[in-house]
């Protein structure tokens, strides 16, 4: 079964059309990138997968998450998708975690409130995941302001994975982190993703990051998919003019001299 199928998705609000005929697929265990500039519709696409479009939006086309139709779903099916099939992580973990509650309360919330787990079972599950992302369960008693951005993003990943989703939607999840912390968080995420055969829709404005981290990459512009290719080809002079333009806009480091040890 395909983890995510988006077929001819169009979405408009009264003032304008946001998405035009977007089609993309994520196979089980695959990491698929969606790259585009602000306003290209990449986040809107990810949110639509969870049925989180604006209230006044008209949606046409098909979205299927692990075989569940999202576009025509009744509230119960939508809840099932959001609770068990898919999870989403965002750029800014501080906006997801309540600043006046202990991290443990926020991280266990999904398991306790949605899945009806006991507090102690939820804490045990989240602690195990925290260990996998390299954090001690001490952080459960801390408040968000006491942790760095990289630590908080790992907490958010652990909380998102606690309900065992088949599909993870990562919307600029590492864009606020510096390169080394980004690599640490992504290494952790890749490990968990492989172990669980989870599928990831990886949304980023960073073409090089998508090229290096994902299996396949879709490029979006003005609400439409304009290019789709194997990630490795991003670095070898892409055919599509817009993809090439994006690739060329990325500031380049000067070529390094080979050091003799």
């Amino acid at each position: 079964m395909t983890a995510l199928v988006v077929e001819n998705l169009s979405l408009s609000v009264p003032s304008r059309q946001i998405l035009r005929d977007v089609s993309l697929r994520v196979q089980v265990g695959e990491v698929v990138g969606v790259v585009g500039e602000s306003g290209s519709g990449k986040s809107t696409t990810a949110r639509a997968v969870l049925g989180l479009q604006p209230d006044d939006a008209t949606v046409s086309g098909e979205i299927s998450v692990c075989g569940h139709d999202v576009v025509h779903a009744c509230p119960a099916v939508l809840q099932e998708v959001r609770a068990r099939q898919a999870a989403m992580i965002f750029q800014e973990p501080r906006r997801v975690l309540n600043p006046v509650r202990r991290i443990g309360d926020s991280a266990c919330e999904r398991l306790v409130r949605v899945h009806g787990a006991s507090k102690s079972a939820a804490t045990a599950e989240v602690s195990a995941l925290l260990a996998e992302v390299g954090l001690s369960d001490q952080v459960l008693r801390r408040y968000p302001h006491e942790l760095s951005g990289g630590m908080l993003q790992r907490v958010v990943i652990a909380a998102a994975l606690s309900t065992g989703p088949r599909l993870l939607l990562a919307d600029e999840a590492t864009s606020a982190l510096d390169v080394t912390t980004q690599a640490e968080v992504l290494a952790v995420l890749r490990g968990l993703q492989r172990e669980r055969e989870m599928s990831v829709l990886f949304i980023t404005h960073d073409l090089h990051l998508a090229g290096a981290y994902c299996d396949r990459v879709y490029v979006m512009k003005d609400g439409a998919v304009v290019d789709h290719q194997e990630a490795s080809t991003i670095f070898v002079n892409p055919d599509n003019p817009y993809t090439r333009q994006l690739a060329e806009a990325v500031p380049q480091l000067p070529t390094r001299e080979v050091r003799h040890a």
Binding site: V179, T180, A183, E184, D206, H208, G211, A212, L253
Partner: peptide
């Protein structure tokens, strides 16, 4: 820092180890 930037052949695991 220079080898941490994503590019061809970039592996986050390797960067994390270096770090």
């Amino acid at each position: 820092l220079l080898s941490s930037a994503p590019g061809p052949g970039w592996r986050p695991e390797q960067v994390a180890e270096l770090r």
